[in-house]
Write a protein that binds this DNA or RNA. Sequence first.
DNA 1: GCCGTTTTCGGCCCGACTGTTTTCAGTCG
Length: 591
Amino acid sequence: MDTSRHMTNLQVAKLLRAVAAAIELSSGDNRFRIVAYQRAADAIEHSSSEVKDLWDDGNLKELAGVGEAIAGHLDELFKTGKVKHFEAILKPFPPALFELMEVPGIGPKTALKFSKELGITRAHSAIPELLKAAKKGRIDERFIKAIEEYQGRSRRLLLDVAQTIADSIVGWMRKNPHVREANTLGSLRRQASTVGDIDIAVASDHAKEVIEHFTKYPHKSRVLEAGVHTASLILPNEYQVDLMVQPPAAYGALLQHFTGSKHHNIKLREYALKKGYSLSEYGITPRPSTSLSNPSPIIGEGRKGEVLSFPTEEKFYNFLGLDWIPPELREGENEIELAKLHQLPKLVELSDIRGDLQMHSDFNIEPSHDLGLSSVDELCDKARELGYEYIGITDHNPAVSGHTQAQILDLIKKRTEVIQFQKRAIHVFNSLEIDIQPIGKRALPDAALELLDYACIAIHSSFRLSRKAMTDRVLSALDHPKVKFFAHPTARLLGQREGVELDWDRIFDFCVRNHKWLEIDGWPNRLDLPDVVAKDAIKYGVKLVVDTDSHAAGQLVYMRYGVSVARRAGAAKYDIINTGSLKEVISCLTK
DNA sequence: GCCGTTTTCGGCCCGACTGTTTTCAGTCG
């Protein structure tokens, strides 16, 4: 079988990165060609669509960073399984080289050196061979640590784990009177679904006192390092937390720089450069003009060579003629253009949410999946505490095997009585989460569906069907007036299971035409829809519902993570069904 | 090799860290 036809985005990206490395090791000044290949690789790796699907539809050049030439090469790749031009570029180098580069600290030059000096040529055994060489003392011993780091990689934290730790530490820091401001940084501040590092910035004119306070954080295991402006703690679970302290007058640039993303910062600096400014973590520097046609500065003020400081990010972005960009949108897509045109979306806020339409109670409906741990009453109490107007209880359907249709109807009627047992302080919708069976049949008789206010459907089995079969299956299950949304659509589990393959355009189209919604499931190891897909859904006009999928009352607070996904997708309040009032939601349910 | 509401040519982010590095090369975020 021709494997190229099944190449994933990650595999295509890796191929392009290998080409970039090979160009770098070849003679001649090809710096910008190298960067072009790396950018194309990044674009493909982060694309919400499978690159092969884009190729199928003739849309490869939609990817920013993929132009005429690379699109042509990928065309050849998908048609024939190989690219003659790439093979010629890669041929002089041993395959092991590109594996060695996966180790942090090893780039193309070092990889080539090791490959030659240590005789490592085969790709599959490259890393173990390198580790062996390192342990024998044939290369610098610092690489032992780097290799082990690589082998234990993908040890990214789930967003909620990192956020919980950061909330505690930021809270601790704010207790100190010298701390003017404290913020998370990086992918955590951008609320990415997984987080690499927990980094915290503090604005203060008293770095010494602030660092001292940080090292007294009560829940630490030990202090790793405490310098003049930075410090690091190790927590009992071995997670590391880094702190940076800067004077309030220059805090804006620091916060901006370390929030990233890398791609956002590159684009922002390119944009600034055209206006005659150079950006850094310290501030904004007007540049000497390089030609008569490029007089500088065009906007703002400042003497050449002088670093201008900014106390806040708002002032930093505004100086460049941009609206402040919420961290969740800083992924290097079109946010800078939108900020320039004052057209950034007004992102949905946690406080806009008025209900939660997916959660599980402890009513024993005899399901094939987990029961919840809390009673309907407990769920209502917590929801009321959160200020909600309504919730939907979506227990799993009764197990298909071992129940007659009459028994299923009976269970649902009994459960309906529990839900409607008394007048409650908030409205409770009577709903179920229904399995989609492999062939697209719902795991609940239609007669039972009629007893509900609404239902959602979800995939809990047969995760590996083809894209077409999977899409057919889902659309078939969605096709009933009582079924209102598709819950945790990709069924991914972060760090455990990849999402299923779906034809999103077909799903989006069906949803828009039939008043169906897609869920953003805020359960921290789902966060599903993924942000990039949710972004496409919104562009298509699909309505979303942000839920927690709680299995206990205390988990209703996971809503913040679902909202973060929605914000990263650029969702405004009106894109989200459950920002509506009870009356509005009831109206949507009957469309 | 990519890209354009100043350009289809002529640009292309920025600074920190590390090592054996007395002025720079490689790598990273």
